[in-house]
Amino acid sequence: MRRFGLLALILGAVGWLAAVIQAQPLQAPRALTSEVRAALERVYTQALPAAVRIETVPEGTGSGFFISADGLVMTAYHVIEDTRSFRVINSKNQSFAAELVGYDEFRDIAILRARVEEPVQFLPLETTLGPRVGEPLLAIGNSRGQFIAPRYGLVNTVERDIFPFFNSIAISTTIPLAPGDSGGPVLNLAGRVVAVVVAIGQPNGVFESYLSPLQGLDEVIAQLRAGRRRDVPYIGVQLFQIDDETAATLRIPREGVLIQGLLRGGAAEQAGLRGFAIRRENGREVYEFDVILEADGRPFNNVTELQRYIRSKEVGDTVVLTVRRGQQILKVELRLTPNPTRRG
């Protein structure tokens, strides 16, 4: 009997720069004219003193920008995630030790504090008005061996869904970004930061860059400045979408999502849920597995929809799963945790 393939999709995966995103085709925005480019170049000249390069240990490079005169720096969370230390370098090549203040893994933004000795120039944030489709934008970053360099482009869409590589809704643009630009500021023609660089992709063979928008985040940013650290919640499972072949092979209804495996130390393992296993009994293969049918009373037959529901929660929240195990229907209560593979 041919066995079905299992695709591991882990609840709580986070987006990374250079992730390849599958998405719907786009209508091309208007061209970036020479006049608009010249205006963006002037914005770059004014913003340059507030932009920074971030160097991390283990070795890595990212981008960021000052958001206060006393040395607060905004960047993408994944730039400094799982690093032991990092430094901030400004356009004068001055280097400052820095420490993490707060982060929001869901939106992939973080705030650091650089140990500056005197007030620094900083960039104003635009949290009221978001960019529009076709609007020209400037990103400042450190890719391709360049130091705090400008990149120009136009907005493709303001509500791009690149899940599961990025938890929130992204802005997609034509800005030619590359690894090293993550965390850099994205400014409008008024010289205000509207977003932070988080990822790039190539949907349908067309390059796009992705930004985490700042619109509506006044309260979130205030919380991060005050030290809030928000992790994406995890159940701690690897899931498989049940298709017709899987249902026929396992002799189960095509409903719910199958648990392929458990992440060590995760909420699912601690609650006694079971991953997929095969044992032999009287010369025959016997399949053992759990299928998640519902979360908090809501039915889920799609892996992505279940992932989205979990992402809408907070670490520490409780979720009640309805699970089929053989002929039994179980209710299992889980307390959502941060990524169990990263945090021991």
Rank of each mutant, 00 (worst) to 15 (best):
M1Q: 10
F4E: 15
G5I: 12
L6I: 15
L9R: 12
L11I: 11
V14C: 09
A19Q: 01
I21R: 01
I21Y: 01
A23R: 03
S34V: 05
A38D: 13
A39N: 15
L40N: 07
Y44F: 12
P49Q: 09
A50Q: 00
T56E: 03
S63T: 11
I67Y: 09
S68L: 04
H78F: 04
V79S: 07
R84W: 06
F86I: 05
K92N: 06
K92Y: 05
Q94M: 01
S95I: 07
G102E: 06
D108R: 04
P119H: 14
L125T: 05
T128A: 05
G130A: 13
P131K: 03
I140E: 02
R151H: 11
N156A: 15
T157L: 08
I162Q: 05
T174A: 14
A178I: 01
G180S: 00
S182R: 07
P185A: 04
L187H: 12
V197W: 02
N204C: 09
E208N: 15
L217M: 05
E219C: 02
I221Q: 00
G227K: 07
Y234I: 10
G236S: 10
L239S: 12
L239W: 08
E245R: 13
A247C: 01
A247F: 07
T249Q: 15
P253S: 08
V257Q: 13
I259H: 02
L262M: 11
R264N: 07
G272L: 10
G272T: 10
F276M: 03
R280H: 07
E281V: 15
E281D: 12
N282F: 13
V286T: 03
Y287V: 11
D290Y: 06
I292L: 10
R298M: 10
P299F: 12
N302M: 10
T304G: 07
Q307R: 14
Y309C: 07
I310N: 00
I310F: 02
G316P: 10
D317C: 03
T318Y: 12
R324E: 03
R343Y: 11
R343S: 08
